[in-house]
């Protein structure tokens, strides 16, 4: 048992603010490398042209004048709070939202969130609230990962409660169908996050967390890694290619996460990330 460590909520606000301001201009190196690899492998001439444009777009955004994409996203915040941490000075949720608010304002990022989904749909004006996933973990640190998640690709995600008898083939078919139906709308080439197992809501969270892995890093379980490799090959066999103008590079990676589930169930969720993969991490 460690001693309780006090962390000022202002430190959390600052970390979230800085991450929002950075990630919307500077694509993480693992994603930039994945795009470069795709450029080398792409067989279609128009696909290569598109990937060259995406690299130029990255370089231009990195200069800090224009965000990579005008959709600066839902702000998704994964926060792992060590159980020996005591947060002082403000409410944790408020601290995170304050970081989003000031980061989005000061970095000239778009406010893309409406306060309610079906009534007035009034823009909140500051991209809050953030979409926060909190875990209490061992230790005395706080790990914060922020993801600016584009709405266009988010819209193409799918969730299904399959039957156990559908098995692995049913899962593969569902993933492939989701990628095929997303087509150009999800701004390929991107990352496919797949959550298998858990219950209704855990499958979706697994899929989202799968996107947060370093791009192309295989799952440690060799059975899952093999499934990732097979899905990667099949998704790319669809021929969709960069921007769906035809090609061999439809997805940059498929990441799968799995979890225990019920004897009656086989939940599957697919969360698609576009080529504008914007994420970063801070540890306090």
């Amino acid at each position: 048992m460690g001693q309780v460590r006090e962390v000022d909520a202002a430190e959390i606000t600052r970390a979230v603010r800085e991450l929002c301001m950075e990630i919307n201009y500077k694509v993480p190196e693992d994603m930039a490398a994945a795009i470069r690899r795709a450029r080398e492998k792409e067989e279609s001439p128009i696909g290569r042209q598109i990937l060259d444009l995406l690299i130029r777009n990255q370089e231009l955004a990195a200069q800090g004048e224009y965000p990579y994409c005008q959709d600066t996203g839902y702000t998704v915040v994964f926060i792992d709070v060590g159980q020996d941490v005591h947060i002082v000075g403000a409410d944790l949720t408020d601290a995170i939202n304050e970081g989003v608010r000031s980061g989005y304002r000061d970095a000239y990022l778009r406010a893309s969130i409406v306060a309610d989904p079906v009534f007035e749909r009034r823009n909140t004006g500051d991209n809050t609230p953030a979409f926060i996933h909190t875990r209490i973990v061992p230790g005395d640190q706080i790990r914060i990962q922020v993801d600016a998640k584009g709405g266009g690709s988010e819209n193409k995600g799918r969730h299904a409660m399959l039957k156990p008898s559908d098995g692995l083939e049913g899962v593969k078919s569902f993933v492939l169908r989701t990628v095929a139906e997303a087509g150009p709308d999800a701004c390929p080439p991107g990352i496919i996050g797949v959550g298998i197992g858990g219950n209704f809501e855990y499958a979706a969270i697994l899929a989202k967390r799968a996107l947060m892995r370093k791009v192309g890093q295989p799952h440690p379980d060799p059975r899952v890694a093999e499934l990732e490799a097979e899905l990667f090959e099949k998704c790319n066999a669809l021929g969709i290619g960069p921007q769906s103008l035809g090609g061999t590079q439809t997805v940059l990676a498929v990441h799968v996460e799995t979890m225990a589930t019920h004897i009656a169930s086989l939940p599957v969720a697919v969360n698609i990330e576009c080529h504008a993969h914007r994420t970063g991490t801070r540890v306090i």
């Binding site: 099949k234 066999a237 021929g239 035809g246």
Partner: peptide, 19 residues
């Protein structure tokens, strides 16, 4: 154009029957 552009790049032999 999407239909025209994608078709030549599909690798049918790698896709499951239903696709």
């Amino acid at each position: 154009f999407y239909e025209q552009a994608v078709a030549p790049w599909r690798k049918e032999e790698l896709l499951p029957e239903e696709f």
